[in-house]
Design a protein around this nucleic acid. Structure first.
Length: 243
DNA sequence: GCGACAG
DNA sequence: ATCTTGTCGC
């Protein structure tokens, strides 16, 4: 199976992990915002990226929190066909950054990167919980993750906050654009008939059409994609077992 | 039981 | 994000 672990890119965007996770990891909001400007500039948000048929494995990423500041990042690699689990990785740590709206990435990234480093398999795509470019500085968690890892990455969020959208049609597969100040930053996607839509936005290395189509494949039965559901479950379980 | 939806 | 109670419904 997979061999290299997260240190090298696969052609498209070179990973910028060292530059952003090393000594210059931000400690203040101002520094974090400055990092986001750079991350945004480094992101590849246009490319078609891999089509769903070309995506053999997808990793879902999620973070679970405890009261005391402990957090557990979980990564679950699924085979796209059949949605079977290929590999799992968790990493327990402490929040290194306070929760600040718009800066969630800095809270979750260190542990998420550690969890991804724990994978022997290098997934073709990453799906994370939260925003990509549907973000004030077009630099949500999915953008950071895509740039840092060099793996095509996008976000699927549950709640619409800072963008406008029309309700998509009732049927599974219906979409409608998400816009911020008239600029399209993603789409609302109905993953099951009649359930609340999820909000897909690109991170880096994959375009919105492919991200949307892949999300639909990853969500055959529930509102959220299986990647997120599995990662969420794994993270919670690990957190609970931490006692 | 598990998920959607309260709110 | 987390915790909790409760109702409806497959």
């Amino acid at each position: 199976m997979g061999t290299d672990t997260g240190a090298h890119g696969t052609g498209r965007g070179e990973p910028q992990g060292r530059a952003l996770t090393g000594h210059d990891w931000p400690t203040t909001e101002a520094e974090a915002v400055a990092v986001q400007e750079r991350v945004r500039a480094a992101a590849d948000t246009m490319g078609p990226g891999p089509a769903p048929e070309e995506v053999r494995t997808v990793a879902g990423v999620d973070v679970a929190y405890a009261d005391d500041g402990t957090l557990v990042a979980a990564a679950v690699v699924l085979e796209t066909a059949g949605l079977t689990v290929v590999e799992e990785s968790v990493h327990a740590g402490r929040a290194q950054f306070p929760y600040v709206p718009g800066l969630l990435a800095f809270r979750e990234l260190p542990s998420v990167m550690a969890a991804l480093d724990g994978l022997a398999h290098r997934p073709d795509v990453l799906v994370c919980d939260g925003y990509g470019i549907a973000h004030p500085r077009r630099a949500g968690l999915a953008v950071h993750l895509g740039v840092l890892t060099g793996i095509p990455c996008y976000g699927v969020a549950k709640t619409p906050f800072l963008f406008d959208y029309e309700q998509p049609g009732f049927d599974r597969g219906a979409t409608s654009p998400l816009t911020i100040d008239g600029e399209q930053v993603g789409c609302a996607l109905r993953t099951q008939d009649g359930v609340k839509p999820v909000f897909v936005s690109v991170g880096s290395g994959i375009g919105l059409p492919h991200a949307t189509a892949l999300t639909l494949r990853l969500a055959p039965a529930y509102r959220q994609p299986e990647t997120t559901r599995r990662a969420d479950r794994l993270g919670r379980a690990r957190l609970a077992s931490l006692t």
